[in-house]
Amino acid sequence: MFEARLANGNIFKMIVESIRELVVDVNIDCSTEELSIQCMDSAHVALVSMSLSQSAFDHFRCDRSLSLGLNLPNVSKIFKMMGRDDTMVLKAEDSADKLMLMFENDKSGTIADFELKLMAIEAEQLGVPDTAYKCSISMPSSEFQRIVRDLQVMGDTCKISCTKEGLKFSATGQIGTGNILMRQNVASEKEEDHVTIDMEEPVELNFALRYLNFFTKATPLSPTVILKMSPGLPIVIEYPIEQLGHVKYYLAPKMEE
């Protein structure tokens, strides 16, 4: 038996929104410790890894590890019916052929319940090592969203370079070149406005802007985003969910021939 109750159901809705443009069918893995997702886009160049600790839930019971195979467009349709302040309850039997979802609101006294058929999804799982990266940058997630959205008008590839000068985003296309430089900035009282750059050695990598823009769908989950880069390795773009979990995206760099 699996049963989980999340007072702020909106967190789960935002998690669904953060991955539904990258993948269609996904397994949510339930264990005694957490809910987690690992999946790749159809081109296998981007990977999403999500974790939400059992401590995020008001009630969490998982007798036996199980995978809930979900079609995200359908899940998203159901979450459209969830109110902003609703509590979410998930329930599944060990056989896991259907998932019960409940949205409760004490104020309005409403309880909505849905039964969703589950699917058996065969998905390739990758072992992602916990690497020490050469550059690690923390910045406001809204700022990162604005930069990758704005640069799309210049081209379809974004060069991200981390040097002593700061973190530079560049895009080149038919109309010319655009550069946006972020310097380290810890002046603000609010920590979430800080830009911190931790650089062991300079790194410069190219990425598809289309994917970087897909990743910014996670912006509502976290005021800050952490970018990690090493030469020749996929970039990690992490949105921490308070102290309770994260959504991490990995994207293969574009290599010059």
Binding site: V45, L47, E124, G127, P129, T157, N206, A208, A252, M255
Partner: peptide
């Protein structure tokens, strides 16, 4: 001219 490898070339299959 760019090319992009799949993540399989960076990470091991589980």
């Amino acid at each position: 001219i760019f090319f992009q490898c799949t993540l399989r070339s960076y990470f091991q299959r589980k």
